[in-house]
C-alpha cells in the first residue's frame, strides 16, 4: 500500500565558526590597463564565491564585473582564508573584499588627487572612472589611472581582512552569545509517499523558505537550495557509510553501494522562497546559509514518514530495510 504524509522542519545556521576566530583576507590591485586583480584565499567548490566576491568588489569600486579577474589558485602567494566551509565565504571573505575595496578606493582617490591637483575628498568614483564631484568633466578613467600609476612607478593596492573575533561573551551555562557572525533561518515542508510493501520512500514535494539576509546572487542561491535539497534527500534516505554501525560489515566501497540521489529521485515539485532581512554585519546584509539547505530536508522527510506510516525513524538513512523493520516492529508490538 502507498501511504502519504507531510512533515516540517525548522533550522538555523551560523556563517563560519559559531564562536568566531576564522579570518579571511583580500587584496585588490589596479593593473596597467585599469582592470583589477582580486586575490583571495577562499576556494570555489562550485558554490560560486568567485562570482560573488567579484560582484562585491565591482559594486564597491563602481567598475564592471568583467574588469575584475579573481585569483585564488596559489597557496604560496595566496592570502589567508580559514577555508570554504560552514557557509562562511560570502559573509567573511565578502567583508574582507569590501574592506580591501574601500582601502583601494582611498588610495586611488589620493593618487588621482595628486594627478589632478585636487583634494581626494572632492573626488567621486563611478562608472569606471574617478572625477571631481562639482566638475564631473574633470577626471580620469580607470584605464588612465592604471597606466599613470603603473608607468609612473606607483602601485595601487588595497587590502582588507575580516574576522569575527574568537569566543566573545559566550555564557557557558546557557550557551547565550552575540551572533558574531550571522544566523540564517529556514523551514522545510516535505511530502512523501511510503510504499509499505517495499519500504521505498518517494519525496514528492519540498517547499522551503530561507531567511538569508540578502541574496547577493539569487541564481547561485537557487543552486545552493536545490543542490542542498538533493543532498538532504540522500542523507535522509540512502547514504550510509556504516549500515550496521558499529559493525563495519557491508560498508559500501563504490557508488553502486553508496547510493547518492540521482535526477530520478528529484521531487516533482521543488518550491523555495528567499526572505531578506539584512544582517548588520553582513556584506550588504548577506548571511551565510548554503549548508543549512542540506540539513533542512532530512528531519522534514522523517516527520513526513511518521505522518504516513506512524513510526518514528530516528537514525538516518530511512532505507527500505529500516522502514520495513520499523513497520514489522510496529505490527508485532
Amino acid at each position: 500500500m502507498k501511504k502519504r504524509g507531510i512533515g516540517i522542519s525548522c533550522n538555523t545556521h551560523p556563517a563560519g565558526l559559531k564562536g568566531g576566530g576564522d579570518p579571511s583576507q583580500a587584496l585588490i590591485r589596479v593593473k596597467l590597463d585599469g582592470t583589477l586583480d582580486l586575490v583571495i584565499g577562499a576556494v570555489d567548490i562550485g558554490q560560486g564565491c568567485k562570482t560573488i566576491l567579484r560582484q562585491i568588489a565591482a559594486e564597491e569600486l563602481s567598475v564592471p564585473l568583467e574588469a575584475i579577474t579573481l585569483s585564488n589558485f596559489d597557496t604560496d602567494i595566496g592570502l589567508m582564508c580559514t577555508g570554504t566551509f560552514a557557509s562562511r565565504v560570502t559573509f567573511i571573505d565578502g567583508n574582507a573584499v569590501i574592506r580591501a575595496a574601500r582601502d583601494l578606493k582611498d588610495k586611488i582617490k589620493r593618487f588621482v588627487g595628486s594627478q589632478l591637483g585636487v583634494e581626494p575628498e572632492q573626488l567621486e568614483m563611478a562608472d569606471n572612472r574617478v572625477f571631481v564631484r562639482d566638475n564631473p568633466e574633470k577626471g580620469m578613467s580607470m584605464a588612465a589611472i592604471g597606466a599613470a600609476a603603473n608607468w609612473g612607478g606607483a602601485i595601487l593596492v588595497g587590502t582588507g581582512a575580516f574576522t569575527p573575533g574568537a569566543g566573545q561573551d559566550f555564557d557557558p551555562e546557557t550557551g547565550k552569545m552575540t551572533a558574531i557572525a550571522s544566523l540564517a533561518f529556514g523551514a522545510c515542508v516535505a511530502e512523501v509517499e511510503v510504499d509499505t510493501e517495499t519500504g521505498v520512500v518517494d519525496v514528492l514535494k519540498l517547499v522551503q523558505v530561507y531567511e538569508i539576509g540578502r541574496a547577493i546572487n539569487p541564481l547561485l542561491c537557487k543552486g545552493q537550495i536545490n543542490g542542498g535539497s538533493m543532498m538532504g534527500i540522500s542523507f535522509a534516505l540512502t547514504e550510509n557509510l556504516f549500515p550496521y554501525y558499529p559493525a563495519v560489515d557491508f560498508a559500501p566501497e563504490t557508488f553502486s553501494d553508496y547510493i547518492l540521489t540521482t535526477a530520478a529521485d528529484m521531487p516533482k515539485e521543488m518550491i523555495y522562497d528567499i526572505v531578506e532581512v539584512p544582517h548588520p554585519n553582513g556584506p550588504y546584509g548577506a548571511k551565510g546559509f548554503s549548508e543549512m539547505t542540506a540539513s533542512a530536508a532530512p528531519p522534514a522527510i522523517l516527520s513526513a514518514i511518521h505522518d504516513a506510516i506512524g513510526v518514528w525513524i530516528t537514525d538516518y538513512p530511512a532505507t527500505p530495510e529500516v522502514i520495513l523493520r520499523a513497520l514489522e516492529a510496529k505490527s508485532t508490538s
Binding site: G46, K222, G223, N226, G227, G228, S229, M230, M231, F255, L260, T261, T262, A263, M266, M270
Partner: peptide, 9 residues
C-alpha cells in the same frame, strides 16, 4: 551522478 545536486538546474 551529481554530488552538487544540480539536477533541477
Amino acid at each position: 551522478l551529481c554530488r552538487c545536486g544540480t539536477y533541477q538546474e
